[in-house]
Design a protein around this nucleic acid. Structure first.
Lengths: 195, 195
DNA sequence: GACGATACGGACTAGCCACTCCGGTTGTCC
DNA sequence: GGACAACCGGAGTGGCTAGTCCGTATCGTC
């Protein structure tokens, strides 16, 4: 709804807007949400005026960055082949969400805010992911690969938690893998199934 | 080191300091770390001047609050009977840490900061907990109750993550329990042992 | 290539917040 | 109970940052 009824942007405006989004994504991830807007503008090679024309509020900028991130995740999640291998698709999706969410510092916290609810736009962006996750969860449960007592809310909380956990392990790939192992094993039915 | 070489505080000063600490603990937990210092002072019934005399910096106040929280956890953790029931003590300790850490909003994030390192004082406060956790972990692993490939760093990351996860479930006790179940089951040796 | 519309830049404003300073108050000790 | 130090309160200061405004530059079109 309310797709793009506005007149198309002028070439330079569109360019600046895009550059602003890209720069903000990187700067937020690198230096945290607290960076002054002016710094983002400078990094993008524009003035603050331009920044605020495209994003009337710092919050709006943050929102735009997040929405784009979430949309990327949603698209990738939608491509996972759920029918042929439900369990695999499910676990792959978890990996995808966790790995994409972990930018740097408190970007995960921003995701967390989205998890709670945030503004309408954000909610819209997350529902696609939520829906996909619920779908994959149900499939994996039907296939007996995931404990049946778990619902989407717990799953999402676990994902947010795992994302946070990952941020404290830095680049240690094997440690990250062990954390994934704990999560995945914990998700399987308690009795234990044959691999 | 550098225990309490200072002259004892005057009665009213000690009272105010204590009240400040208590109030700050609650206010930070309730409204987040961003609350203006003045608000904390008012809630404690003192002026800002008094606050800054006792804690020269907002950061120092935060630190003091955290240290006290951590010390409480450490004391409680030290009381768990590790020898008689290694596995139980271990899992009880995890519960304790997660439940105590979850204040309200981003207090967990502050804990996270402590996890990364923060200042010397904080590090000192966390080492007791870390040591205890490592000890209990090793015991539980010897008893075959926990997967042997897991080290303290991963465990701590998992705890921080679980704390974050819990904050997104609010008061839903059964959901929280399911999250604990996922964590605990995931921590057990992959092969599966007899309960 | 010229003209109107659109967009840009960045000095400027307003508000917020950590922290200071000092005249006044309260505890402590003889 | 008096005198001195320790402590208190809160108006004030400085610095930082989100957001505005308008003269100037650039784009698109005829």
């Amino acid at each position: 709804m309310s797709g793009t009824p506005e007149r198309p942007l002028r070439a330079d405006a569109a360019r600046n807007r895009a550059r602003l989004l890209d720069t903000a994504t990187e700067v937020f991830a690198t230096r945290g949400i607290g960076v002054p807007t002016e710094e983002i503008a400078r990094a993008a090679g524009v003035g603050v005026g331009t920044l605020f024309r495209h994003f009337p509020t710092k919050e709006a900028l943050l929102e735009a960055v997040l929405v784009r991130k979430l949309e990327t995740i949603a698209v990738r999640a939608a491509q996972l082949p759920a029918e042929t291998a439900p369990a695999e698709a499910f676990f792959d999706c978890l990996r995808l969400v966790v790995e994409q969410s972990a930018g740097k510092t408190e970007f995960a916290q921003a995701l967390a805010a989205a998890g709670v609810d945030a503004h309408a736009t954000l909610r819209e962006a997350t529902t696609a992911i939520r829906a996909r996750l619920s779908e994959l969860l149900a499939g994996a449960q039907r296939a007996g690969a995931v404990r049946p007592d778990l619902g989407p809310p717990e799953l999402i909380a676990l994902l947010i938690g795992t994302t946070t956990a990952m941020e404290h392990l830095g680049d240690d790939a094997s440690a990250r893998e062990r954390v994934f192992a704990v999560l995945f094993d914990g998700l399987r039915p308690p009795g234990g199934i044959r691999a």
